[in-house]
Amino acid sequence: MTDLSLHLMDIMQNSLTAGASCVEVGVKAQKSTDLLTLYVRDNGSGMTEETLKRVSDPFYTTRTTRKAGLGIPLFKASAEMAGGDFRIESAPGKGTTVTATYEISNIDRKPLGSVADTVTMCIMGHPGIEFHLILENEESSFVFRTEEVREQIGDVPVNDPVIIGYLKEMIEEQSRILFGGILNEIIS
C-alpha cells in the first residue's frame, strides 16, 4: 500500500465483510504531539477472542478463498514502522475498532493519501451502508455522515455519480483545511 488512505479502504472492507451497517472513519492530526491517529469503527459481527488473538498473524484468516489475511498485518506494520502503535478492540456482537497511530514527522510514515477517494468509493460501492467521517486537528474538526446527505437529497441515491463527485470535492477541501501545514504532504 502506497498511502494510509489505501490501508483505511482495506480495513473498511473488513467492516463491510463483517456485515456492518455503519462504518466510521477517523483521522486526527496533532501537531504539538506529532501524532496522527487513524481509526475504523464498525457495528459488524465483531471478533471472537480466538480470532482477535491470531488476527495480527499474517497466516491467519477465516476466509476460504485464500489462506493468509494480509490487511490487518499490513496496517499494523505501517504504524509500527513509523514510530506508532496499533490496537484492535472487538467483541462478538459489539463491533470492531481498529486504531493505528503514527509519528507525523517520522520519515517512514506513509503519506495520508486521499481519504476523500476512500470514503466516496465505499459509498459508491455500498449505498445501503451508513458511513461517518471525522477529520480533526487541534483547533477544529469536520464531521460527515451519509444520513445527513440522505436528508438533503431525498429520493436520489447516495451513489449517484453527481452526488459522489460533490462529496469528494467537499472532503478533499476539508482535508486541505484541517491537515494542510500539519501533514507536510498536504498543501493548504
Binding site: L6, M9, D117, M121, G165
Partner: peptide, 20 residues
C-alpha cells in the same frame, strides 16, 4: 475487485476513473 490484493495493486483509482 476491492480486497487487499486489489487495493494494493491500484483498484481504487481504477474505480474512481470509472465513476468519473
Amino acid at each position: 475487485g476491492m480486497a487487499t490484493c486489489g487495493i494494493a495493486a491500484g483498484a481504487r483509482p481504477v474505480m474512481n476513473t470509472f465513476v468519473e
